[in-house]
């Protein structure tokens, strides 16, 4: 392999050249921060939970990466992994999009559900993945979410959900809209059962998901800088909304307007979740039992 073009240069000059050349680097060793343009060594970035060490930009995480940094090692048991989508309307190109989503995310669908332990506390978990068709909610996402919530009610478990989604899955038409009612109805049952429901907004959480199960948590946390809101820019523009403030539809905007409890940086997420679960009366699983 030829030496990198910045080899031998020092300081600023090296970084500048590296910045220009990083896009051309083929082997995925480096990543450019989309916010501050800093060149980040991938291994360092992974060690830092995929948060930019300079500007603390939070990269999107895949569902499995999220589970890995949240759930105690070796405790996660996936549920309903074999649910897959069908094309109820015969919508054009939907099947190819599903295939593409599978390829990009290496997942069967846009959400992983299951049970595991966080700080020794048993929980039910639902984690969305944006790479599968923008994390959109169709029949499978709705069904998997409801099943894990119903399982939690049956087993008396708290539910934690990490959301990321562009909204309802348009390709399933009106049926995807109904997933909003379906998932939120399950949340109502969870609340009636007196079980904790903790939601974490991650980048981006919008539209049909934001306006359903994501917004009815006992507490709602968000990662810094996440896009969080009801209507996407394109939809809003069509409705004639032109002027949008600078921090519009970010975690910070939602915090300012009282819509979320707290912005939690990635490195503090697990400890915050444990504190919250303990407040809700969840106890560490005793091995004797």
């Amino acid at each position: 392999m030829a030496p990198a073009p910045w080899f031998g240069l020092k300081g600023k000059a090296a970084r500048k050249t590296a910045r220009q050349s990083v896009d051309a680097l083929p082997d995925g060793l480096w990543t450019k921060c989309p916010k501050c343009n800093e060149i980040l060594f991938n291994k360092e970035l992974d060690k830092n939970l995929r948060v930019c060490s300079k500007c603390s930009y939070h990269y999107k995480l895949g569902a499995w990466e999220r589970i890995e940094i949240t759930v105690d090692d070796g405790t996660f048991v996936e549920a309903d992994a074999k649910l897959t989508a069908i094309n109820p309307l015969g919508f054009p190109e939907y099947d190819t999009k599903i295939a593409k989503g599978r390829l990009m995310s290496k997942l069967n669908e846009a959400i992983i559900t299951g049970t595991g332990e966080v700080g020794g506390i048993e929980i039910a978990l639902a984690v969305a993945d944006f790479r599968f068709m923008g994390g959109s909610m169709g029949g499978v996402v709705g069904e998997k979410f409801v099943r894990i919530v119903e399982h939690a009610i049956e087993k008396n478990l708290p539910v934690i959900t990490f959301t990321t989604s562009g909204g309802a899955r348009m390709q399933e038409g009106i049926l995807s809209l109904m997933q909003m009612a379906k998932t939120t109805a399950a949340c109502a049952r969870l609340h009636k059962a007196g079980l904790p429901y903790i939601v974490i907004f991650t980048d981006p959480t919008t539209a049909g998901v934001h306006a359903s199960y994501a917004s009815v948590g006992d507490v709602i946390f968000a990662e810094p800088g996440a896009l969080v809101g009801f209507a996407g820019a394109r939809v809003a523009q069509q409705a004639g909304v032109v002027h949008r403030p600078d921090n519009f539809q970010t975690s910070e905007f939602q915090l300012e307007h009282g819509m979320i409890d707290r912005i939690v940086p990635r490195k503090d997420m697990k400890s915050t979740l444990i504190k919250m679960l303990q407040f809700c009366g969840c106890e560490e699983k005793s091995d004797a039992a």
Binding site: A211, G229, F230
Partner: peptide, 27 residues
């Protein structure tokens, strides 16, 4: 045609309002 998506509606939590209705209406 749709719920209002102006800046003011986002500020006052249009998503939360709809989500809460879905939840409360289900019970």
């Amino acid at each position: 045609p749709a719920a209002d998506c102006s800046v003011g509606s986002e500020e006052r939590g249009i998503s939360e309002a709809i989500a809460r209705n879905l939840m409360e209406m289900s019970t």
